[in-house]
């Protein structure tokens, strides 16, 4: 009985995770400016990742395995927040990047 409940919860969490990742991708298309797209990527995708991590926790082989999953999640959260801030800072400091630079790098 408990197993079935846990399984149902896991499936629900996985579906929620998929939905949020899909909405995050939708955000890349619907938002027209870079900064708004960062909003979509950081907040929505992190929520999606959170649901996936919660769904995977009951599958962890040991306590250490579960803690490792949570640590990876925390690292991804910190990485996402830092990246968001850095890109936002770059766009804020220099809103129109030089086009010549772009073609030279490609």
């Amino acid at each position: 009985m408990i197993e079935t409940t846990v399984f149902a919860m896991q499936v629900l969490l996985l579906v929620m995770g998929c939905l949020f990742f899909a909405v995050g991708t939708l955000g890349l298309f619907r938002f027209s400016d870079t900064l708004s797209r960062i909003h979509a990527l950081t907040k929505v995708d992190n929520l999606g990742l959170g649901f996936i991590v919660l769904a995977l926790l009951p599958l962890a082989p040991s306590l250490a395995g579960g803690l490792k999953t949570v640590l990876i999640w925390a690292a991804a959260l910190a990485a996402s927040a830092t990246s968001a801030h850095l890109i936002a800072r770059a766009v804020h400091v220099r809103p129109e990047p030089p086009e010549a630079k772009e073609s030279a790098d490609d």
């Binding site: 995770g17 990742f21 995050g24 991708t25 890349l28 298309f29 870079t34 797209r37 960062i38 990527l41 950081t42 995708d45 992190n46 999606g48 990742l49 996936i52 991590v53 995977l56 999953t69 990876i72 991804a76 990485a79 996402s80 990246s83 968001a84 890109i87 770059a90 766009v91 129109e96 990047p97 630079k101 772009e102 790098d105």
Partner: peptide, 30 residues
């Protein structure tokens, strides 16, 4: 999402790919 990012146009837009891998990629690998 990568198709959208490939279209750019600004370099900062393209760098969102790194963030995308940081979340979606991590979820995928887990």
């Amino acid at each position: 999402a990568l198709i959208r990012i490939w279209r750019g146009p600004a370099p900062a837009d393209r760098m969102l790919a790194s963030q995308l891998f940081g979340t979606t990629g991590v979820a995928l690998l887990l």
